[in-house]
């Protein structure tokens, strides 16, 4: 029973981070209609950038480091779009996907060339956490939950009440609407990249705080995010948010039945099952005919 409660809590924390990854990815998918493999590397780069600011010689505070990392990743995402995705705006989703695989490979190995392949952790002391009965939560984890919740609230307000946010939601919910935006659409796309990159960077920093950093951390998180996107219905921001929590919980509860080594495979199982058994939501549009 304790084990289940602890797993629920861990799943909730992981889920809140995955929700950040997933909302960003679904915004990109909803507006640009391709699976951006490099989203995982935005997450990874966010974590490493924050790490760079936290360690000597800079030794900034964690919050300042995270803030700077977010700005850096926004820049990286905009650069990616300008250099690669923009020239391919009307290419087939498969070409875009392959290009994003190239970016992913490039950034992963850039990180490895700079920082090496070894696993690193943020320079916090891992102080013992608070206990609620038998369930333990660390201060870092409380901070994670708080930051994730604040980010989600911020995203909600942005999408709900600002003009730019409403435009994004409009395009993401209904691709056909994109056409009516015409010249505006490039501006919307830029805003989407900013938002997605910020979410990825915040999530990446939180993820690294909860676990650790290594150059190849992007891929598995991309996969989790994509599973969450499919769960929520592609392009659906709040669906992806809930999807993120579902993935976090199923991973942490799943290992109670499955061997621990398969934890990272759970998101893949979910993806395959979703792709196969949601014929209307996903396949329906694929088979659209004229």
């Amino acid at each position: 029973m304790t084990l289940i409660l602890q797993s629920l809590l861990d799943g909730l924390i992981a889920g809140s981070i995955y929700a950040l990854f997933a909302t960003g990815l679904t915004l990109i998918y909803g507006t640009l209609h391709f699976i951006n493999f490099a989203h995982g590397e935005l997450i990874m780069a966010g974590a490493y950038l924050a790490y760079l600011f936290m360690i000597p010689p800079l030794s900034f505070s964690p919050f300042l480091s995270a803030g700077l990392a977010v700005l850096g990743i926004i820049g990286l995402a905009l650069l990616m779009d300008k250099a690669v995705f923009r020239p391919l705006r009307n290419a087939s989703p498969l070409l875009l996907l392959i290009a994003s695989l190239g970016i992913s490979l490039f950034l992963q190995n850039l990180a490895q060339a700079v920082w090496g392949a070894e696993i690193r952790t943020f320079p916090f002391s891992l102080e013992r956490g608070l206990s609620f009965g038998p369930v333990v939560i660390t201060r870092v984890q409380i901070t994670i939950l708080f930051v994730a919740a604040a980010t989600i609230l911020f995203l909600y307000l942005l999408l709900k009440f600002t003009r730019a946010g409403k435009a994004i939601r409009g395009v993401s919910d209904n691709p056909r609407l994109a056409e009516t935006f015409g010249v505006e659409s490039e501006k919307i796309i830029r805003n989407v990249w900013i938002l997605a990159a910020a979410l990825a960077a915040v999530g990446g920093v939180l993820y690294a705080a909860d676990t650790n950093l290594e150059p190849h951390m992007g891929i598995i998180n991309l996969v989790r995010a994509f599973a969450a996107v499919l769960l929520g219905g592609t392009g659906n921001v709040w669906g992806a948010l809930i999807g993120g929590f579902v993935i976090g919980l199923s991973e942490n509860l799943g290992v109670l039945i499955l061997p621990l080594g398969y934890k990272d495979a759970i998101a893949f199982f979910i993806i395959i099952i979703l792709l196969l058994f949601r014929p209307e939501g996903i396949l329906g549009t694929r088979w659209g005919v004229r």
């Binding site: 490979l105 190995n109 850039l110 490895q112």
Partner: peptide, 19 residues
């Protein structure tokens, strides 16, 4: 860093080819 730099080159080539 030879191996990662190689992989970076592969990544770049892939992007350029697609582009």
């Amino acid at each position: 860093i030879v191996a990662p730099v190689q992989q970076m080159a592969f990544g770049l080539v892939l992007i350029l080819l697609v582009m």
